[in-house]
Each structure stands twice: as C-alpha cells, then as structure tokens.
C-alpha cells in the first residue's frame, strides 16, 4: 500500500507541487489533483494605540490519499474507479461515464471532473513515473522537501502515523494512506479554532 507523507512545518504554500502535477498531466483550469489549503486562526488584542497578535497559519498540501477504504471505489456505478494491486486508486477512462458520484463521496474531493474529456480524473501517484523508478512529480517538485511517498508502512515507521489535523476530513471515513508531520500550531481534527483561509484556491 502506497501513500504520501507531508510535512506542515516546511510548506509555505507556494504550490510548485500543484503546478508540477498540472504540467505533467496537462490538467485544465479547475482540475488540480494536488491542492494546498491554508488554515488560519487567532486574532489581535487591541489596547488603545497598540495591537498584539495571537495568530497562527499553516498549509496542507493534499492529493488523493489512496485510502484503505476508498469510498470513491465503493460508490462508482461502472467499476471505473479501481484499486490497483499496489493499493493506489485509479479511474479507468474507458469505463467512466462522468457521473461524478465519486467526487461527491470523497471527503477530499480527490476525483475531479475533467470537462474536456467528460470523465473523472485523479492522482494515480504518477503510475508511469513509478514504473520507471521515478518519484511522483509533486514529490520531486517541492522546493521545501515537504513531500515524500512510499509504502505506507515505511512512511509510518519513518515519520509516525498522525494525520488527523484540521482542516482535513475525519480520517475514519476512508482511512487515508497519509502521514502528516504537524505544524507547531496544527490543531487536532474536531478541535479547530481556525478557518480555511483560501477557499477560492481549492
């Protein structure tokens, strides 16, 4: 089972990962298999002429998490959405009718409708690159080295097994193959005091 690792302590939200993915897969505007969400919170204590901040912000870069329980596969009426033997989830373009059930079901909105093809599209963890011994494009793109990938057991052994942080969905829904190193201000899932600060971008 393969998965991704993401380090919130390194990501400045530049989105080189998103663009590297878009460049490789020729995805049009509106289709981003990898996106970056900004989570921000806190406020200012204004006292007369002075103002003191108590503010936090951090980014999370997110693609398909190739889940243990991929709800997109479960709901697909045409069996187009499939798990490969290596655990990665892909959509067979010849079977997909573009009904978008998977998109509505996935808590991460990982499957995305490509209006140019009329089919769903999604991250396949750069299957072609992996076949030739290369890393997924997003992993090698990150200027901060915030991304890694590999067999999920190895990632968990190396980086731990945490992934329940705001503003991500409840990991119990699909059991994502994802490991996150939290930002010092990261808030545990269900206990967030912040908000998604870049709604337009995701």
């Amino acid at each position: 089972m393969y998965g991704f690792y993401f380090d919130q302590t390194l990501c400045n939200g530049c989105k080189a990962c998103q663009i590297a993915c878009k460049d490789k897969h020729d995805n049009p505007i509106g289709v981003n298999w990898r996106r970056v969400v900004e989570y921000t919170g806190g406020s200012w204590q204004v006292d007369g002429e002075t103002a003191r901040p108590n503010v936090f912000s951090y980014y999370t870069s997110m693609a398909c998490n190739h889940c243990e329980d991929p709800i997109c596969v479960t709901v697909c009426p045409t069996t187009a959405m499939t798990k490969r033997e290596d655990g990665t989830v892909y959509v067979d373009q010849s079977k997909c009718v573009g009904c978008r059930y998977c998109e509505w079901a996935c808590p991460y909105s990982a499957p995305q409708f490509n209006a140019q093809t009329g089919h769903m599209s999604k991250c396949d963890l750069c299957y072609d690159y992996r076949q030739t011994g290369q890393d997924p494009a997003c992993v090698d793109a990150c200027p901060a080295r915030a991304l890694d990938w590999g067999p999920i057991e190895e990632l968990r052994a190396k980086y731990g097994d945490q992934n329940a942080f705001e503003p991500l969905p409840d990991p119990s829904i699909t059991r994502p193959n994802l490991v996150i190193k939290p930002h010092r201000d990261a808030q545990p899932f269900g206990h967030g005091t912040g908000f998604i600060a870049n709604r337009q971008e995701i």
């Binding site: 108590n54 503003p167 201000d185 990261a186 995701i202």
Partner: peptide
C-alpha cells in the same frame, strides 16, 4: 471542496493559546 473539508468555518475569534503543540514526531522532513 470547501464544504466538505473538515468542520472548519469561516470566521475566528478564539486565541491561539489553545492550540496544541506537537513535539513528539521524530525526523526533520523528507
């Protein structure tokens, strides 16, 4: 996407003081 990603809602007010600090993770990134 926005609706589904977590229970996060726009607007804030709570202070950061409540935020947890995680220090128990080994490794310094990829």
């Amino acid at each position: 996407s926005f609706l589904k990603w977590s229970s996060a809602v726009a607007g804030s007010g709570a202070l950061v003081g409540a935020a947890l600090s995680f220090t128990g993770i080994p490794g310094v990134g990829s």
